[in-house]
Simulated scan of single mutants.
Amino acid sequence: MAEADQLFLSDRARELYNGFTLKPEKSMMIVGSIYGDGSLLMDRKSRSPFFYENHCMEQLEYLKWKASMFGRPDGVRFRIMSHGYCKGKSIPYFQIRDRAFIDFEKMFYVVGKNGRRKKVVTKETLELLVGSALALAVLYQDDGEYDVYSNQAILNTCDFTIDENKIMERRFEELLRAPVRVKIKRQKYPRLVLSSKATDEFIKIVKPYVHPIMRYKIDQDISHYLDQQIVEKFRKNYRNMSKKQIAREVGLTLSETYIIGYRLGLTEHSGYVRYRDKPFTEQEKGYILKNYNESVAKLMAEELHTTTKYLRVLIHKMQANNLEEGKAGESICVQYNS
C-alpha cells in the first residue's frame, strides 16, 4: 500500500480523513465500500454499527484483501444465501464491528420516511470518495465495469437517487476534467458513465490500488479480448484493405471493424468520430448541406464513414452559422463521442 499522502486527491479530503479515529487507509476502505457493495448495519444488541460485505465465490481473494486491511485476514466466512441472485449458493462474507464506525454511520445514513435507514450523498461524503484514490478504486472494484469497445468505465451507483447521481456527475467531472454522464439502465437504475477521456484519467488514478483479480477492469488493451488471429489480420491489412472485406472475412459488422481498428491504434486520426480517419473537407460539408434529409441520412452516413447522429449535429451547426463566407475555410472537427 502506498504512503497515506499519495492516496489523497484533495486537501479537503485529507482534512476529513484525519478527523477519523481509524487510520486513513481503513477509512478509505470503508468509504469506497459504502459507496459500493458494503454496508454499515445496526442491530438491537449494540449501539455500534458493524461493517458487512459479501461477494461471489470468484471474488473471494478480493474480499480477503479487504478483510486484511482491517487486520482480519482470516475474517472471511461462508453462508448460504436465502435470497437474491445467489439464492441457495454458498457465498463468502466479511463483517466486523467497531465503535469507530459510528462516525461513518452518522455521515452516510439517514432514516427515511418509511423508517428504514438509507445511504445518502452529501458534500462531505462525496469529497471523502472523490478525494481518495483508494476509495475510488474500492468503489470501482465493487460496482464498476469496463466497456473495452468504447473505452468507458461505468460506476453502478443505483443505491443513490438520480439527483444524488447528478451531484456525483459534476464532482467527477471536476476531478477528471472530462465528460461524465448519468445514464439510466432499464429505465430504473442510475449509473455514472465516464467518457473515454475521463476513463483514461480515472484508470490512472485507481490502477495502483486494484487487486490482481480485478485487473481486468483496468485492462484497456482490446487485443487481449480478441482472437489473436483477428488481431494479426487487423494489424496486417487494416490500412490497405477494404474495411467491408475485413469485416466479411473475420465475421464482424462494419461498425465493429471500425471500432476495433480505432481501439488497436490503426487509425491516424485523433479526436474524431471513430469511423473517420480525417475531418470533413469543405466539399463534403457542401455536399451534406445540399443533399441531407432524414430519408438518405443512413446511406449518407455510411458513404462518409460517420454516424447519422453526427450528421444531424453537423447540419444544425452549419445551418445556424449560415455558412458565412468568412468561415467557409474553417474546419469543423468531428468530435469523438465515447
Rank of each mutant, 00 (worst) to 15 (best):
F202G: 10
A328H: 12
F51H: 04
F78R: 11
T125V: 10
I91H: 01
G115W: 11
F101C: 04
K309T: 08
A301R: 07
M168C: 09
T21D: 10
Y238P: 00
E303C: 03
I96N: 05
H211I: 02
R181S: 15
V296C: 08
M1I: 06
Q319S: 08
R14Y: 10
K45R: 12
Q220T: 15
A328Q: 14
A178W: 03
Y272P: 00
L155P: 00
R79W: 03
F20K: 00
K317N: 09
L155I: 06
A297V: 11
N322I: 12
I260C: 02
K188A: 14
Q152C: 15
G326K: 05
G329C: 08
V313Q: 07
Y17I: 06
R215Y: 01
Q220H: 06
R99N: 11
K45G: 14
Q245G: 10
K26F: 07
V334P: 07
R177K: 13
N322M: 11
L126Q: 05
K185H: 13
M107L: 15
I30C: 04
K45N: 11
N321K: 15
D221Q: 14
Y209N: 12
N114T: 12
D227S: 06
A320G: 10
G251C: 02
R12W: 10
N291H: 15
P73A: 01
K119S: 00
E302M: 13
I218N: 08
S46Q: 00
L254I: 03
L264A: 04
D98M: 12
G131P: 00
I203L: 15
E201G: 11
K317A: 12
Q59D: 14
R14S: 05
L252E: 01
R274M: 06
Y292M: 10
P279A: 03
P73C: 04
Y275K: 15
K106H: 02
K118T: 01
E25H: 11
I218S: 08
Q245S: 09
E249F: 09
S46E: 03
P73Y: 02
L134N: 04
F104W: 02
Y17E: 04
V206A: 04
E58Q: 14
K23S: 10
D219R: 13
Y238H: 04
Q283P: 07
L7Y: 00
F160W: 01
N114F: 13
F50M: 01
Q283K: 14
D43I: 01
N240Q: 07
L41G: 05
S295D: 15
V182L: 06
K64I: 06
L155D: 02
S33G: 05
D98K: 06
L266E: 04
K188R: 15
E201H: 13
R116I: 13
K298R: 14
R99A: 15
D159S: 13
R116D: 06
L155G: 03
F8R: 00
K87F: 06
A198S: 12
V138Q: 12
R263T: 04
K185E: 13
K188P: 10
I332S: 11
I154Q: 12
M69S: 10
N321Q: 11
V210K: 07
Y146P: 09
E25A: 14
A67K: 02
N156K: 14
A301V: 04
L252G: 04
K45M: 15
V130G: 02
Q220D: 14
K217N: 07
D142W: 06
A247G: 03
S150I: 00
G112C: 04
Y85M: 14
H55I: 10
N151M: 10
C86K: 05
D11L: 14
F104Q: 01
I246K: 05
Y272S: 07
